[in-house]
Design a protein around this nucleic acid. Structure first.
Length: 1029
RNA sequence: GGGCGAUUAGCUCAGUUGGUUAGAGCACUAGCUCGACAAGCUAGGGGUCAUAGGUUCGAGUCCUAUAUCGCCCACCA
C-alpha cells in the first residue's frame, strides 16, 4: 500500500518537481508546423535588485496562463529575461562605489564602470532568475534574454536605424530634467516632487531710460533667484485688461456653478481681482505698450539690458503681472523664449555649478549662488520682499538630488506619425485591455503624441548608433557609404553630419580624412524594452521563433507602466514588424502595505517572496497572490516580522520597517531584517517579513495532500480504470448513484467556470472556485460519502474510480495555480494508479509523466445535471440538520441518535439510497423516512429543504433550551413572514413586478407559513411535554 | 485643475444583467484526536453595505451630491 506522510513537505516537493521539470524540459517550446501557439514575454525585471511581491504576483499570473494553455495543448512559450534598466542600475552601482570606495564614475572611466555594472548585473540576474525558478515559473529557461545582450542590441540598432532613415529621430536643444549628480537628463517619469520650505523673492528690475509717466521699474517674483543670471527678458501680457476680463468672467461662471460653501472663497478672489484691476491695470497697460515699443529693463547684478516682451504667459491676475524669463532653465520660459525668439543662456555646468555666463558667480554650486545672489540683491537695494512659501521641488528618483531644468542637445523621437497606428490598434479592438477601463488612459496618453526624448548621458546602456563628422561634403559620404544599406546620413544643420549605422561599428574611421566620432549618449532604457516582444524572438532576423510566436498572445503587467512601456511596445512593434506585439493586455492590481502605501524596497515595507516560499511554500504564495488578483482594486497586505527564535509576530510599522535589527518583544531576542548591513547585525538570525494571508494557501496544499492520502490508502492495488472516450470502461452516467452523478456534474461546471475565469483574467475567481469545490464539496462531502462505500466490496471499485476521477481533475485544474503540490501528488498517483485515464486523455498514450503536460480537463456537457445538484443539496441539508441538533443539544460526537425524517414519498424514495450515507455522516440511525415519519415525544426538530428532521434525544434533550430556541426561531420566521406579506399586499408590487418574481415570493410566503406552523406546533408539543414531567 | 478607482464583518477582500434572509479567508466562541487532514472536523456569534437624497414594485448593485482614501496626468513666476 502506498502511504504518504501526514503533512505535505513543500521543500522536498519543490526540489523534486523542479528536477523533474528541468529534466523533461516541459517548459521548452520549439517552433512546430501546424500547432497553434500561445506566447507571453515576461516584463523583464530590472537587474537593480531582487524580486519583490509585486513581481511574484506578476509572474504567478503569467505562469497560471502559460501552464493552462500548455495543458490545453497550445505550443506554449513564456520568454524570460531581465532589463538592464539603464539609469537605475548605473545609479545603484555608482552609489555603492561612492559609499564603499569613495570613487566617482569619472575616477573609474567609462570602460571600467561598465565592467563593474556587468558584474553587478550577473549577480542580480542570477538571483532574479533563481527567484523565478523558486516561484515555479515555467519560463523557457533555454531562451533567457537580457535587454542589453547581443541579440537585443542588434534589434535596437536596427530599429534606431529605421527610425533615423524615416526621419523621425531628431536631434535638437531641449529643456531637460538634469540630474547634476548622475550628470544626465532624466525623463519626467524619473522625477518626483517633494514639498520643501522655501521662499518667494520679489526682485525689482529697473526700466532703462523711463519716460515721464512710465513706471521706473518692474517687480518680478521667483522661488529660484539665482536663475536671474540667465534671464533674457521680462514678460508682460500684451492685453492685460482683456486678460483680466477673461479671468473675471471665468470666476463668475465658477461662482454660478459653485455650492454655497465654495462661494465665499470665490467672492474673495473676485474682490481681489477687482482691487487688482484698480491698482495695477494702468501700470500694466503702460508696460504692455512699452513692450510693443521694444523697451528694455536692466538685469540686476549683471547689468545686462534685456527686453520687455509681450507674451500671454504673463498672467496679469498673478503676482505683479510681470514675469522674468529664463529660457534655458524653466520649461514655461523656454516656450516663451521660442515664441519670442529670445536668446537662451545656459548658466549651468553639467555638474550643477555655474558657468562663465554667470559672471562673478561662476564656479559656485546652485545653492551657494542663491545665497550670494540674494545677499547681493539686498545690498544693491533691488530686493523688494521675501515671503515664506512651501514649494514643490523636483528631485531625481535615481540620485535623490534636486533636478535642474537644463538646456541640452538631445535625441528625440517624433511621435505624431508613429503613435497613430498604436492608437488605432486599441481603439479598433485589435488589442484588448483587461479590465477595459484602462484603455482610456492608454489612449489619452498616446493621443498627446508628445516627443519621446531618448538620449541619456549615461554609460550603461545601448550607445546610440550615431557618428558625428564635420567638414565633409555629401559626395564624400556617398563615396564612403554609398553601397552600404546599413548606413544612412543626414545634415546636422550646423555644417556637420550625422551618420547612423545598424552595424555595431562603421567600416571606416574617417571620411575624407575627417574623423567619425561616436555619439557618447546611450538610449533611454525603455527604448530596448519597447522592442522586447520582437527582439527576444530574433528580429530583425526572420527566425522560426518570430514566425511561430509573434505576435504574442498576452502581456501581463501592472498599470503604472501602461504608458511608459505598453504603449511604446505597441508603437515599436507595429513600426518594426507591421504587426501588433500582443493581442491582449492584462492589468493586475498593486500590492500595498497595511497603510495603503505601495510596497517598495526604499520604504522597507516589502516582503521577500523567498521568505514565504521557504516557510509556507511556493504554492501557498501563488495561491494567495492569485486570490488577491481581483479586477477592482489594489490589495492591502498587512505584514509582520516573525521572530526566528520564538515565532512571535511583530507588526511591521513605519518606525520599525527600516531598522536593521529588532528585539522581539516576547522573547527579547534580537533578529535582523533585510536592512542589516554591518557585521554584528548580520550574525543575527533573520526575521522574515510574513503575512497571514499566505497561510490559507499552505493549509489548502495540505488539504489536497491529505485527500490524496485518503485515496491512496483506499486504493489498495486498484490501478485505475481507462475511461478515455471510446474505451470499454467509459462511464455510464445513468447507472451511477446520486453522489457520483453529482460529482460529475460539479466537475463539469467547475471546470467550465475555472477555465472561463482564467480566459478572462479573473484569477481570483478561478482560485476561489477551485478552493471551494476542492475543500467544501470534494473533501467535506464526497470523500466522507465514500467511506461507507469503500467498506462495501460490491461498491468499492466504482467509488475508487470516482475518487480518482475527482482527484485527478482537481489536480489538473489547480496545477496552473499550485504547480508543486499538484505535481508531487501526480507522481504519487502515477505510482499507485498509473493505468487510469480520464475521458479527456488519449487512451492509446501513456499517462503524462508530468502533470505539466497532462491534458486540460474537458468534461462532456452531458455530465451537467441541475436536478442532481439540487437533490444532492437536499441530502446535505438533512445531514446538516441532524448535526445542528446534535450540536445545540451537546450530544457527544460518538453517541448515535435515532432520527425520523418526514418528507414527501417521492423525495423519500429518491433519497432512500442515501440512507447509509446520512447515517454515517451524522452518526444517526434512521428509524423512519417518508410522509408518515413523526416526532417521538422526546425529539428535537429541524427543517431542511422539504424535509422535517426529528432527532430522538430520549433523556438527552434539554427541553428548556429547545423551547427557548424555538421561541427565538418562530419570532424570526414571523418577522420574515410579515415582511413578505406586506410586500405581496402592496398593490404596486403586485401590479408592476414580473410574474416570475411574484410567484417566487408567493412560494416563499407559503414556505414561511408552513415553517411557522411547524414551529408553533413543536413549541406546543414541547410545552406539553414539560408540563407532563 | 483633469481623469480613473475605492469605501461591504475586528482584519483582508468577493458580490455576475437590480430580485429570497449579503458571502469567503483569517481572527473570535463552544465542542471534538473517529484510520485522510489539529495546517483538521462540527456547530455558532459577528454587517444600518461611508453619508444624504433620487430612480424603481424592489437598490450593496443604477443616478446625483457630500466625506474620506488611493492612483494617473497636467500645473504651480
Amino acid at each position: 500500500m502506498h502511504e504518504l506522510p501526514k503533512q505535505y513537505d513543500h521543500k522536498a516537493a519543490q526540489d523534486r518537481c523542479r528536477t523533474l521539470w528541468d529534466t523533461g524540459r516541459y517548459w521548452h517550446a520549439e517552433p512546430e508546423a501546424g500547432r497553434t501557439s500561445y506566447s507571453i514575454v515576461i516584463p523583464p525585471p530590472n537587474v537593480t535588485g531582487a524580486l519583490h511581491l509585486g513581481h511574484a504576483l506578476n509572474n504567478t499570473l503569467q505562469d497560471v496562463l502559460v501552464r493552462t494553455r500548455r495543458m490545453q495543448g497550445f505550443l506554449t512559450l513564456w520568454m524570460p529575461g531581465t532589463d538592464h534598466a539603464g539609469i537605475a542600475t548605473q545609479a545603484v552601482v555608482e552609489r555603492r562605489l561612492l559609499e564603499e570606495e569613495k570613487l566617482s564614475r569619472h575616477d573609474l572611466g567609462r570602460e571600467q564602470l561598465v565592467k563593474r555594472i556587468w558584474v553587478w548585473k550577473e549577480q542580480y540576474e542570477k538571483r532574479i532568475l533563481g527567484q523565478l525558478r523558486d516561484l515555479g515559473a515555467s519560463c523557457d529557461w533555454d531562451r533567457i534574454r537580457f535587454t542589453l545582450d547581443d541579440q537585443c542590441a542588434a534589434a535596437v540598432r536596427e530599429a534606431f536605424f529605421r527610425l533615423f532613415q524615416k526621419g523621425v529621430v531628431r536631434r535638437g536643444k531641449r529643456l531637460v530634467n538634469w540630474d547634476t549628480f548622475l550628470q544626465t537628463a532624466v525623463s519626467d517619469d524619473e522625477v518626483f516632487h517633494e514639498q520643501v520650505k522655501g521662499h518667494f523673492w520679489h526682485i525689482r528690475y529697473d526700466v532703462i531710460d523711463p519716460k515721464p509717466g512710465e513706471p521706473p521699474s518692474v517687480t518680478v517674483a521667483t522661488t529660484r533667484p539665482e536663475t536671474l543670471l540667465g534671464d533674457t527678458a521680462v514678460a508682460i501680457h500684451p492685453q492685460p485688461g482683456a486678460a483680466l476680463d477673461l479671468a473675471e468672467k471665468a470666476l463668475r461662471e465658477k461662482r454660478a456653478a459653485a455650492t454655497a460653501k465654495e462661494q465665499p472663497e470665490i467672492d474673495a478672489a473676485l474682490a481681489e481681482l477687482v482691487a487688482r484691476r484698480a491698482d495695477l491695470l494702468p501700470g500694466l497697460e503702460r508696460l504692455a505698450a512699452m513692450a510693443r515699443d521694444g523697451r528694455q529693463v536692466r538685469l540686476p547684478l549683471l547689468g545686462r539690458a534685456i527686453p520687455l516682451v509681450a507674451d500671454e504667459w504673463a498672467k496679469p491676475e498673478l503676482g505683479s503681472g510681470c514675469v522674468k524669463i529664463t529660457p534655458a532653465h524653466d520649461p514655461n520660459d523656454y516656450d516663451v523664449g521660442r515664441r519670442r525668439s529670445l536668446p537662451m543662456i545656459n548658466i549651468l555646468n553639467p555638474d550643477g555649478t555655474l558657468n562663465a555666463e554667470a559672471g562673478p558667480y561662476a564656479g559656485l554650486p546652485m545653492h551657494k549662488a542663491r545665497t550670494k545672489v540674494v545677499a547681493d540683491l539686498e545690498v544693491a537695494g533691488q530686493l523688494v520682499q521675501v515671503e515664506d512659501r512651501v514649494i514643490e521641488l523636483a528631485h531625481s528618483d535615481r540620485s535623490k538630488t534636486p533636478i535642474e531644468p537644463y538646456l541640452a542637445d538631445q535625441w528625440f523621437i517624433r511621435m505624431d506619425e508613429l503613435a497613430q497606428p498604436a492608437l488605432d490598434a486599441v481603439s479598433g479592438g485589435r488589442i484588448r485591455i483587461f479590465p477595459e477601463r484602462y484603455a482610456k488612459s492608454y489612449l489619452d496618453w498616446l493621443s498627446e503624441k508628445r516627443d519621446w526624448p531618448v538620449s541619456r548621458q549615461l554609460w550603461w546602456g545601448h550607445q546610440i548608433p550615431i557618428w558625428h563628422v564635420a567638414d565633409v561634403a555629401s559626395a564624400d559620404l556617398e563615396q564612403a557609404f554609398g553601397g552600404c544599406g546599413s548606413v544612412a546620413w543626414r545634415s546636422d544643420e550646423a555644417g556637420g553630419w550625422f551618420v547612423c549605422s545598424s552595424d555595431e561599428s562603421l567600416a571606416t574611421e574617417t571620411v575624407a580624412g575627417r574623423p567619425l566620432v561616436r555619439d557618447p549618449d546611450v538610449l533611454d532604457t525603455w527604448f530596448s524594452s519597447a522592442l522586447w516582444p520582437h527582439s527576444t524572438l530574433g528580429w530583425p532576423r526572420q527566425t522560426p521563433e518570430l514566425a511561430a510566436f509573434y505576435p504574442t498572445s498576452a502581456l501581463v503587467t501592472s498599470r503604472d507602466i501602461l504608458t511608459l512601456w505598453v504603449a511604446r511596445m505597441v508603437i515599436m512593434g507595429i513600426f518594426d514588424t507591421g504587426e501588433i506585439p500582443f493581442a491582449e493586455v492584462a492589468i493586475h492590481p498593486k500590492i500595498l502595505d497595511r497603510y495603503g502605501e505601495t510596497m517598495s524596497k526604499s520604504k522597507g515595507n516589502g516582503v521577500d517572496p523567498i521568505d514565504v516560499i521557504d516557510s509556507l511554500g511556493a504554492d501557498a504564495l501563488r495561491f494567495a497572490l492569485a486570490s488577491m488578483a481581483t479586477e477592482t482594486q489594489d490589495v492591502r497586505m498587512p505584514v509582520d516580522f516573525q521572530c526566528p527564535a520564538c515565532g512571535h509576530l511583530v507588526e511591521q510599522t513605519v518606525q520599525n520597517r527600516v531598522k536593521p535589527r529588532i528585539d522581539c518583544p516576547k522573547c527579547t531576542k534580537p533578529f535582523r531584517t533585510q536592512w542589516a548591513s554591518n557585521a554584528a547585525d548580520l550574525t543575527l538570525p533573520r526575521g522574515p517579513a510574513v503575512s497571514e494571508k499566505f497561510e490559507s494557501g499552505r493549509n489548502f496544499s495540505n488539504k489536497l495532500w491529505n485527500a490524496t492520502r485518503f485515496v491512496l490508502m483506499n486504493i489498495d492495488g486498484f490501478a485505475g480504470e481507462n475511461l478515455s472516450s471510446g474505451a470499454a470502461a467509459s462511464l455510464d452516467i445513468g447507472s451511477l448513484p446520486l453522489e457520483d452523478r453529482w460529482l460529475l456534474s460539479r466537475l463539469a461546471s467547475v471546470t467550465r467556470e475555472a477555465t472561463r475565469a482564467v480566459d478572462e483574467y479573473r484569477f481570483a475567481e478561478a482560485a476561489r472556485t477551485l478552493y471551494a469545490f476542492a475543500w467544501d464539496e470534494f473533501c467535506s462531502a464526497y470523500l466522507e460519502l465514500c467511506k461507507s462505500r469503500l467498506a462495501d466490496p460490491a461498491h468499492r471499485d466504482r467509488a475508487r474510480t470516482m475518487l480518482l476521477v475527482g482527484l485527478d481533475t482537481i489536480l489538473r485544474l489547480l496545477h496552473p495555480i499550485m504547480p508543486f503540490v499538484t505535481e508531487e501528488i501526480w507522481q504519487h498517483l502515477h505510482e499507485a494508479a498509473g493505468s487510469r485515464r480520464m475521458p479527456w486523455d488519449s487512451g492509446a498514450k501513456p499517462l503524462a509523466a508530468s502533470i505539466m503536460v497532462a491534458p486540460w480537463p474537458a468534461p462532456p456537457a452531458a455530465w451537467m445535471d441541475a436536478t442532481t445538484e439540487t437533490r444532492f443539496g437536499t441530502f446535505l441539508g438533512v445531514v446538516a440538520a441532524i448535526r445542528e441538533i446534535r450540536a445545540r443539544q451537546n450530544v457527544p460526537p460518538k453517541t448515535r441518535v435515532a432520527v425520523a425524517i418526514r418528507t414527501s414519498g417521492d423525495l423519500a424514495s429518491l433519497l432512500e439510497p442515501m440512507r447509509p450515507a446520512i447515517e454515517a455522516m451524522a452518526a444517526a440511525d434512521i428509524a423512519a423516512f417518508g410522509p408518515d415519519a413523526s416526532a417521538s415525544p422526546s425529539a428535537a426538530t429541524a427543517s431542511a429543504a422539504g424535509c422535517d428532521v426529528f432527532v430522538d434525544l430520549a433523556d438527552l434533550v434539554d427541553v428548556d433550551a429547545e423551547i427557548a430556541r424555538l421561541l427565538k426561531e418562530n419570532e424570526k420566521t414571523e418577522g420574515f413572514l410579515r415582511a413578505k406579506q406586506t410586500k405581496l399586499a402592496d398593490e404596486k408590487f403586485a401590479s408592476r413586478a414580473p410574474e416570475a418574481v411574484i410567484s417566487k415570493e408567493r412560494a416563499q410566503l407559503a414556505e414561511l407559513e408552513a415553517r411557522l406552523a411547524k414551529g408553533v406546533a413543536a413549541l406546543a408539543d414541547l410545552r406539553g411535554r414539560k408540563g407532563a414531567t
